[in-house]
């Protein structure tokens, strides 16, 4: 065990996989010699050689197309997209190719690729370094979408993603790369040091895709979150004193529907959180599933707290970001209904 930041934990996962499996290789913009703009691949080119971890041309479509071709051949490529905001030039490759290769070839070909991308807001990155595109991928059958909220899960989920024979979009909440962030942007920045989930085994382990984590048990309301919003939820729950159950979904496809339904049936109230804008966000799917499966257990309408339906606005970061005050207000609102 060692105390790791999320960046170190991700690096460790990639290190473990490069070591174990000669068919694992990684590539992306600036990830080779430089180790990536967020330093997730630092030292890996040096340790494993040029062809195991290398720089690519600035072509997200090219990166993903190449990864799919390599995956079809039998390698396990891990592609980095420098920011999730820049994954869109590769969207056709992901939607029409990676997601359907197995289905349309009746299992003759498949794409065991992992696509890592830093995502989410909270770093004053403006419109194109802040977005949360998870719902776009969740909508596409055939793609897995995974989002860790702490170093331990980050490593275990990334190893599981690399070992998966299905294409996995692995979104890394960049605001919590170096420490948990609960949305109180005016308070001192925290590191992962002393956080229980920063205790990360050095070797190989997996956190299964499709298994949520109940981070806090409670009786009155269920909070569903992932990524940075898990930490915002923790702060809001503590500040309101409401006896909430906090579920970190960890992967939105596959989705741990069992954990969601069990908790919702227990509490009868739900608050769904995401940074992405609200309309047709992943919260809409969660909310629909809950009303389909738990309607007769509900005591209040399910609430969603999300980014506003605008592009990510640079100067208004903290007006846009669904921080603890907005989450707390939603918690109180669902508690007031009977």
């Amino acid at each position: 065990m060692a105390a790791m930041s999320m960046i170190q934990a991700l690096n460790s996962a990639l290190d473990v996989m490069l070591e174990r499996d000669p068919d694992v290789l990684m590539f992306g913009e600036d990830i080779g010699y430089f180790g990536g703009v967020f330093r997730v691949t630092e030292g890996l080119q040096k340790k494993y050689g040029l062809k195991r971890c290398f720089d690519t041309p600035i072509s997200e479509g090219g990166i993903i197309a190449t990864a799919i071709g390599m995956g079809a051949y039998g390698l396990r490529p891990v592609a980095e997209i420098q920011f999730a905001d820049y994954i869109l030039p590769a969207f056709d490759q992901l939607v029409s190719e990676a997601a359907r290769l197995r289905y349309r070839s009746n299992g003759e070909f498949w794409a065991p690729i992992t696509v890592r991308a830093p995502y989410g807001g909270g770093i004053f990155g403006g419109q194109t370094h802040s977005q949360s595109p998870e719902a776009l991928f969740a909508h596409v059958t055939g793609l897995c979408t995974v989002i860790p909220s702490n170093p331990y899960d980050a490593k275990g989920l990334l190893i599981a993603a690399v070992e998966s024979n299905d294409p996995v979009i692995f979104l890394e909440p960049k605001r919590i790369y170096n420490g948990p962030f609960d949305g109180h942007h005016d308070r001192q920045v925290k590191t992962w040091v002393n956080h229980p989930a920063a205790e990360v085994p050095e070797g190989h382990y997996t956190v299964p895709l499709g298994k949520a984590a109940t981070l806090r048990e409670g009786r009155e309301v269920t909070v569903l979150a992932y990524g940075t919003m898990v930490h915002v939820a923790e702060a809001a729950i503590e500040e309101t004193g409401i006896d909430a159950e906090l579920i970190d979904l960890r992967s939105i496809v596959p989705l741990d529907i069992g954990a969601i339904v069990a908790s919702m049936k227990k509490t009868g109230r739900g608050v769904i959180l995401h940074e992405a804008s609200r309309f047709a966000g992943f919260g809409a799917e969660l909310s629909a599933l809950i009303q389909e499966r738990c309607f007769y257990h509900l005591k209040a309408p399910v609430a969603r707290v999300a980014g506003w339906d605008t592009p990510y606005p640079h100067a208004f970061e903290w007006n846009y970001f669904p921080g603890p005050a907005r989450v707390a207000a939603a918690l109180k609102r669902v508690m007031e209904e009977n």
Binding site: G125, G126, Q127, T128, H129, P311, P313, H314, A315, F316
Partner: peptide, 16 residues
């Protein structure tokens, strides 16, 4: 500076 007189009204990253 993304200030009150920002001609792009705070919506865009500096220099864009």
């Amino acid at each position: 500076f993304s200030n009150e007189r920002d001609p792009l009204r705070g919506r865009q990253l500096p220099i864009l």
